[in-house]
Design a protein around this nucleic acid. Structure first.
Lengths: 337, 337
DNA sequence: ATGGCTTTTTAGAGCGCTACAATTTAGCAC
DNA sequence: GTGCTAAATTGTAGCGCTCTAAAAAGCCAT
């Protein structure tokens, strides 16, 4: 017979039980599988709950059941907005199953991704979604169902991978530019699994078309500043380039800066195409032609995969590829004849 | 004598205690106030911890101490990047005290801010930082130390308020434009406490200078699209406007779109100034003159205030105003003579 | 009524940690 | 050594919930 009015003032199942005239166990059962409880008691318990304003304690539930009903999402950088769609569709799919999504960013620069993951694991998340580039090998202690979203180098052993077909997306971008009559096409790349695949797609299409492979920034980052720097190098080395395919929208904006500085107009003098179809690309002002990797689909896939794993942790890892879609906007135009 | 190798496989203080040859209580004490433990034992315990890869269970700690060592940050929308600096400086200040920051967005549009707050409270956050516009009155059940960041309508009873001086920032923006010789200045506004103060500052300065008050979008939102719409209305109603002060950087970008559509050049034909000095304004391409509300300072203030409240919850609410700084970039220029 | 089943309800032992009281050890002056 | 105080360590209850096994209640046919 534990206390009835605990120190914190928050009502507990004991309070609810007392008020409803049932045992605490029954209250717990109502919480977990209401179907197993008779209609009469179930109603009584629910009434008592709302009368008391009862809210279950996550900490206690977690401690007792070792499940938190929460899943962690690790992203690279809040400023890279591609994760927003992913998050939204994950939330939509998971919340109906009672799961909660917590976002942690890996404080770009440092190898803080481990810290982010450790933090989430310390919170006992039931599952992990990694949407960031691991700085090295993934820590694999304390195993929880994990799925990786987007191409990454070093997918942890046993984790699912759900990603857009960045390879295909790269090819789609090139094909669009070829269709517009461009022949001297440059690519701004960067490090990371996603960028590598986009580059591979680019390179493949360019070679097949018998054109010169122009790539810059392969070894750099993928921020706006990196895009700017890569674009500068590109224009220096290949001044006659008529179209640029950037590894993401942010880098595309960096390229805009480089072009503006040189007095080149988009798309008049040079076409630019980005990747991710992020809010940046959708901006009415920027209005960037971009490859949409369907983060919304990736997100719902991630969610259902995670739910499946939560059911059966022994499920064997699987890779899923989502078809990207090119969204043509105002930064690409036919090549000057 | 509880189990030594619990089901989950994770080591517990019992495992650590056994390995270090001390009692579980001592291990707990090392965790809480290491200073009270003799050097010898402290070391032994620490060695045992790292040998075992021990990580304390947050759930258990929370349940036992009713403190989570985590604070929740409620933001409006992930896409509005002004919160990033706030978050960073909060994290920096709080992590040294063992606190963890969890971000929740209020899913703009709906009144989901209550959901966000409820979610955080269900996680038993020790403190709450509200950096979003409440859709109505704040829910005030389950009281936790709360501080509001940025001007808002409806600051909850008893909460601290730490904000940039948006009023002063609005005046600073106008003064900059006046200095550049502008006389026909428009303001793109929106709903929300911050926007209102910026508008008030604008209006005050304009009136003092004996100029016409030109405001658009007062009743609308503060997204890029809203900025676009407001700018269109502004240009329609006052076609001779030579400078625009937008309530935030995002709206400024919307204004760019409206200007571009009309063939007006920034800053050649018209100067534009934003607010927040967000990553958007800092973008090399956009390079927007903007008022920096010093979210970094706000963040560290929020953190120290929160820590103080955590010590002494009876502390009486206080309001702090942070001086904003104008950052001049390339979107403002002298008015045409 | 009685027995044999199924469905509903409950007791009780934890989950891993904290916090306070109680106990042991150390330190120091005489 | 002895006595006394301060410091270090430990025992013992919980925190609020879950979950299994066991008890109680229902149901139906005999």
């Amino acid at each position: 017979m534990t206390a009835t009015s605990p120190g914190t003032g928050r009502p507990t199942i004991y309070d609810v039980a007392k008020r409803a005239g049932v045992s605490p166990s029954l209250v717990s059962l109502v919480l977990r599988s209401p179907a197993r409880v008779s209609d009469k008691r179930r109603e009584a318990v629910r009434v008592a709950m709302s009368d008391l304003g009862y809210r279950p304690s996550r900490a206690a539930t977690t401690l007792a059941s070792s499940r938190t009903k929460s899943i962690g999402l690790v992203i690279d950088d809040y400023r890279n907005l591609w994760f927003v769609d992913l998050l939204r569709s994950m939330q939509a799919a998971l919340s109906s199953h009672g799961y909660h999504v917590t976002v942690a960013d890996s404080q770009p620069g440092e190898n803080r991704i481990h810290e982010a993951i450790d933090g989430l694991l310390a919170m006992h998340v039931d599952g992990l979604v990694i949407a960031a580039e691991p700085g090295g090998s993934m820590p694999n202690r304390s195993w929880v169902p994990t799925v990786v979203a987007g191409w990454r180098n070093g997918v942890p052993e046993g984790a699912d991978l759900i990603t857009g077909d960045d390879d295909g997306g790269g090819r789609a971008a090139v094909e669009h530019l070829l269709m517009l009559g461009h022949r001297r096409i440059g690519h701004l790349s960067g490090t990371g699994g996603a960028a590598e695949h986009r580059r591979k797609g680019f390179q493949g299409s360019i070679v097949e078309a018998g054109l010169e492979v122009r790539i810059a920034g392969e070894a750099g980052g993928t921020s706006e500043e990196d895009g700017y720097a890569a674009a500068c190098r590109m224009l220096e080395q290949y001044p006659d380039t008529t179209a640029i395919f950037a590894a993401n929208d942010t880098m595309a904006v960096g390229a805009f800066a480089a072009l503006k500085a040189r007095g080149l107009r988009v798309p008049g003098d040079i076409s630019v195409i980005g990747y991710d179809n992020s809010p940046l690309a959708k901006s009415r002002y920027l209005d960037i032609t971009s490859v949409d990797n369907r983060s919304d689909l990736v997100g719902s896939d991630v969610a259902s995969r995670l739910l499946a794993r939560l059911e059966d942790p022994a499920l064997k890892a699987r890779r899923t590829l989502i078809e990207p879609v090119l969204v043509v906007r105002s930064t690409t135009a036919p090549a000057a004849p």
